Amino acid sequence: MKSRVRLLATLALTIIALDLVTKIIAVATLDETTPPAEQPRILGGLVYFSLIRNPGAAFSMATGMTWILALIAIGVVVYIIRIAPKLRSTWWAVCLGLVLGGAIGNLIDRIFRSPGFLQGHVVDYVSVFGPNAEYFPVFNVADSAITVGGILLVFTALVLGIDLDGTRSRDTSKNKDADV
Rank of each mutant, 00 (worst) to 15 (best):
T167Q: 14
L30I: 08
D177T: 15
R170H: 15
L98T: 09
S127M: 05
R41H: 09
L100D: 06
A93Y: 05
R82V: 14
T34D: 03
V78S: 01
I81H: 03
A12Q: 06
M65Q: 08
V180W: 11
G149K: 05
I68M: 08
I108A: 06
Q119C: 01
L18N: 04
L107T: 07
I108K: 03
A12S: 12
T90Y: 11
L7S: 13
F129T: 09
L51R: 01
G45I: 03
V21L: 11
A26S: 08
V128I: 13
R4L: 13
I15L: 03
L11A: 10
N175D: 15
Y135F: 12
V122G: 00
S144E: 10
P115E: 09
S144W: 04
L30A: 06
P35G: 07
L8K: 08
V138S: 03
V21G: 04
L8Y: 06
L69V: 02
T90E: 10
T66W: 00
G120H: 04
V141K: 04
P36R: 01
A142L: 08
I80W: 06
R88V: 12
T66C: 00
L153Y: 13
I151T: 14
I83M: 09
P115Q: 07
V27Y: 02
S3V: 14
V27K: 06
L18M: 09
I111G: 09
P115K: 03
L20N: 12
M1G: 14
G44W: 00
G120M: 05
F59V: 08
A62E: 02
D165I: 11
P36G: 03
R170F: 15
L43H: 01
F59S: 02
I146V: 14
W92V: 12
I74D: 04
V126Y: 01
N140D: 11
L160W: 14
T34N: 02
P115L: 08
G45Q: 00
L46D: 05
L87C: 10
I151S: 12
V21W: 03
L98D: 07
V138H: 01
V77E: 10
V138R: 02
A9E: 10
G97H: 05
N175K: 12
I83Q: 06
S114L: 12
L107K: 07
G161S: 12
R113L: 11
I25T: 09
F129W: 11
